[in-house]
Design a protein around this nucleic acid. Sequence first.
DNA 1: GGTGTATGGG
DNA 2: CCCATACACC
Lengths: 259, 259
Amino acid sequence: MKIATYNVNGIRARLPILLQWLKESQPDIVCLQELKAPQESFPIEEINAAGYNAIWHGQKSWNGVAILSKGYEITEVQRALPGDPEDIQSRYIEAIIDQVVICCLYLPNGNPYPGPKFDYKLSWIKRLKKRTDEFITMDLPAIIIGDFNIIPTEIDVYKPERWENDALYRIEVRKAYQALLEKGWLDSIRSLFPDEIIYTFWDYLYKAYDRNAGIRLDHILLSPYLASGLKSGGVDKHVRGWEKSSDHAPVWIELEKDK
Amino acid sequence: MKIATYNVNGIRARLPILLQWLKESQPDIVCLQELKAPQESFPIEEINAAGYNAIWHGQKSWNGVAILSKGYEITEVQRALPGDPEDIQSRYIEAIIDQVVICCLYLPNGNPYPGPKFDYKLSWIKRLKKRTDEFITMDLPAIIIGDFNIIPTEIDVYKPERWENDALYRIEVRKAYQALLEKGWLDSIRSLFPDEIIYTFWDYLYKAYDRNAGIRLDHILLSPYLASGLKSGGVDKHVRGWEKSSDHAPVWIELEKDK
DNA sequence: GGTGTATGGG
DNA sequence: CCCATACACC
């Protein structure tokens, strides 16, 4: 079972790229972020034509998340992160696919720091922790996957000193991420390549991709139940080099579920 | 000598289409309208790479005209229509190429009627007549070519009755066009096909091209000196059907100059 | 730099 | 419908 995440930065503008990548990569489950499209503008016909069924939660202009599946039924569980009924941003969708809980998220960016957006990010992570701790407690097969907008450690950024006061790298955010992991989640890509420099995002500006001035923001966390089934994984970095690509690259793992 | 006119509706957005059409059509001289680009944004490198030299008069957002030539020197004569120094719209550029005067124009649309925009159109036609009458008087080899925004007669519009109060078809405008012709100019396409339904523009809306709900707006007028050299001509209608095409189609003639 | 939105123009 | 502009956000 191949499971992937891809922040598309606009599903409509990115559709040709997405379809090309799906064709070449053939993931079974794909989590998408930053649809930037209202609910009714999701290109479900083209996604279906590519062999995938999908659930999604759109929103005008911003955010938006989706889960695609090839050949597996998708049972939607949540279309918002519990804990704040006032929060109307489309950043979370949760489903059960092939008996695994999939938590697809687009975590708030949080910039500028300090400020209300940063506070929102921290409170969002708290709500996420509350929700996902349960899966560990219950020893469920679960995956937290998506664009976390969190640079976990200094080896995940090309120039750490420049990022100290950026919400993606602020110490409070890294600590909150560590606290999440300490509950038992496995950062699958980092566990596969403990010492390698791995990035998933390169800014459009300043030829960041050409200079490999990247950061690692997109993560796939496995609950202990699933962790031993991790077979392989990687970042489809070349996709970031395609014409008209997103500023993120797809990240994927191969999971052996029936161990 | 093949001479063409093409309202590109945005030179930057249309560049791939323009280059493809140039390659297939191989005109010697091309007049472009609606560049919709400031002077410095004209893609001269790509035009040069396609084998053409060019002069142009750009403007931010609107209007803009250019003359392209393959293998002939372009001697610019005017980059505005004489007669109103206050008029800053880039709608006229005039050059001598291979001893022929080329008057490339993008005549004002004039809608809504009545109103100041319509008045501007009529006064613009007056200025054009004043300028071009001279070429007839002097019996020069001259061509007036471009997007006239004038439907000359009722056979040049799919549904004449709907257009009576449109500035493109208002009787005052048609009369002004006739007055121009009566001085001696030959409407080359109409002269080649006296009774045929020929359109050069189809609105983007309402599937106008699929329904062939078109109008004839783009004209190539020949001074008497040149008229007898007209060999053939046509509208490259299929180009209007290309993906991401302009709402106009290119119009062209073959001219035998050395009779 | 590359999404999205909105508005003006045709 | 499809240019262009200006702006917000990342």
